[in-house]
Amino acid sequence: MWKHAIEDAMMKIRNNVERFGDRFPHVSENGKYELNNNEDWTNGFWSGMLWLSYEYSGDEFYREAARRTVESFKRRMEQHIVLDHHDIGFLYTLSSQAQWIVERNEEAKQLTLQAADVLMRRWREKGEYIQAWGLPDNAQHGGRMIIDCLLNLPLLFWAYEQTGNERYREIAIKQADQSRRYLVRGDDSSYHTFVFNTETGEPLGGATHQGYTNGSTWARGQAWGVYGFTLAYRYTRNPLYLDTAKRMANYFLEQLPEDHVAYWDFNAPVDVNTYRDSSASAIVAAGLIELIGHLDDSDPDRAEYEEKLKLSMTSLVDNYSTIGEDDAEGLLKHGSYYVRGGVAPDDYMIWGDYYYLEALMRMDKGIKGYWYEL
Rank of each mutant, 00 (worst) to 15 (best):
A172D: 07
L311H: 09
D177E: 15
D177V: 14
Y337R: 05
G201N: 12
E202W: 06
S47V: 03
N197S: 12
Q131C: 07
W46G: 00
L360N: 02
G211H: 00
S216L: 12
A282Q: 00
Y370N: 01
G215A: 09
N105A: 14
W100K: 00
G142R: 06
M77D: 10
E358Y: 06
R104A: 15
L357C: 11
L151G: 00
R362W: 13
E39K: 15
M120D: 13
W264R: 01
S278N: 06
W100E: 02
T322G: 02
G293F: 08
A249M: 12
K365G: 14
A280G: 03
E64I: 02
R180A: 13
M11F: 14
V195T: 15
D296E: 13
T193V: 12
T230S: 08
R180Q: 15
R76S: 04
W264N: 01
V195K: 07
Y168F: 14
D265M: 00
L111P: 01
G330E: 00
E304W: 14
D347A: 08
A98K: 05
A245F: 03
E325V: 08
W133S: 08
A359N: 09
G369K: 04
D353S: 08
F266Q: 00
M11D: 14
N319S: 15
E254T: 08
L374Y: 00
Y372L: 12
E202G: 04
P203G: 06
S312K: 04
Q114D: 12
Y33L: 11
S53V: 07
H80G: 06
M145W: 06
L94R: 11
R181L: 11
I173D: 03
D188V: 09
N267T: 10
V195G: 01
Y235Q: 03
D271Q: 09
K12M: 09
D188R: 15
D346N: 07
A268I: 01
D187M: 09
M120P: 13
Y355T: 10
L52Q: 04
S190W: 00
F24W: 09
N214S: 13
N197W: 08
